[in-house]
């Protein structure tokens, strides 16, 4: 059979990352167009495997967590074994923190670089054409893999996740991981999101800027985000002022988000901020300055005082959702 895709499905404590489901569905769409197949691999239990199996793979390798010592180096070792065994043409993962870390370690073993953070992938003439942002989204490059093996990660929230007509065949796979290759030991994991929607996966993101004036007003942003059922972000000005932790920062030196709706509150729209959110589907700006650059990218703009507008908006959204 022609060589196809190998997709790494990320399972975090029983929850499969949304980006991984998007990667599975994207690989399936491309495989169908190219007449190839999709293999996938998940580390986890039967329930996790059954869930992942619905999203487009033909065959899903299930690996017991103990086999990979619950560590990144173990996952890399597992994937390297599968690449040698199955000789895929394309190895795909979601560009999550873990995906962007695992794939380069894997690619290095095959003397390759990774095509990171793709935002579009098309099948053309039996090959893949991959588009990715460069210079923080100020431009895009379209690349074509060279050689018989390519590694790519897909930006979360950009590609649709869809269930396939038939579930994958689940195959229990014993990973022969050499413990000596597990070099980095994870001593502790601390969850800071506290069960909230992760910024990069949220369908709706509400971010606050310097216009909120003080740390004690950031809850206004959180309340609006909660009303929408989304996540709360911030501009760098807010992070630098110490009003909120850095993991909320959106922009060139923060997170890149591509939600369906991005609401910028009291944010001027500096180029470095736009870099992190301009691929959002809809953008709403609330700013008292009609000349703020954020209005140039906003689909809907409200010129007004956020301290008046946001409380009304929270109420209106809650009412509509009730």
């Amino acid at each position: 059979m022609a060589q196809g895709f190998l997709v790494y499905v990320e399972n975090r404590n029983g929850r499969i990352r949304k980006g991984s489901l998007e990667a599975l569905a994207t690989a399936r769409r491309l495989a169908d167009a190219l007449g190839r197949t999709v293999d996938a691999v998940i580390v986890g239990d039967d329930a996790a495997a059954a869930q992942a199996a619905r999203f487009g793979a033909h065959r899903l390798f299930r690996v017991a967590p103990a086999d990979v010592f619950d560590a990144r180096d173990g996952v890399v070792e597992l994937l390297a074994g599968l690449v040698r065994q199955e000789s895929p043409a394309w190895v795909v993962a979601s560009a999550t923190a873990a995906g962007k870390d695992c794939l380069p370690a894997l690619a290095a073993r095959f003397e390759r670089s990774v095509i990171q953070d793709a935002t579009e992938v098309a099948a053309e003439g039996g090959e893949l054409l991959i588009k990715r942002p460069i210079y923080a989204g100020k431009a895009f490059e379209v690349v074509k893999p060279a050689g018989a093996l390519a590694f790519l990660t897909l930006r979360p929230n950009v590609f649709p996740a869809a269930e396939a007509p038939a579930a994958a065949t689940v195959v229990d796979h014993a990973a022969a991981v050499d413990p000596a290759r597990v070099r980095t030991r994870v001593a502790e994991v601390r969850e800071t999101a506290g069960g909230k929607v992760e910024l990069t996966e949220a369908a709706i993101v509400v971010s606050g800027g310097r216009g909120i004036k003080a740390a004690e007003h950031y809850p206004l942003i959180e309340q609006l985000a909660a009303a929408f059922g989304g996540a709360a972000g911030a501009s760098r000005a807010v992070v630098d002022a110490g009003w909120v932790a850095h993991h909320h920062q959106v922009g060139q030196t923060g997170k890149t988000v591509s939600p369906t709706l991005y609401v910028a509150v009291g944010i001027s729209g500096a180029i470095q901020h736009l870099a992190g959110m301009s691929s959002s589907k809809y953008i709403v700006a609330i700013n008292k300055d009609p000349d703020a650059p954020i209005f140039k990218v906003a689909d809907y703009g409200i010129v007004g005082d956020l301290f008046q507008v946001v409380p009304l908006l929270i109420e209106a959204v809650r009412k509509l959702k009730a």
Binding site: S113, I115, F140, V143, K144, P145, G147, D299, Y300, I302
Partner: peptide, 28 residues
């Protein structure tokens, strides 16, 4: 090499948005 650059593109221009006028209640 791992890839070949086919072309570079500028980001698609976002269509001009709409400014919503009025009093805060009406805007919201």
């Amino acid at each position: 090499r791992s890839w070949e650059v086919v072309r570079l593109e500028m980001p698609p221009a976002r269509a001009a948005g709409r400014l919503i006028d009025g009093e805060p209640e009406a805007q919201v």
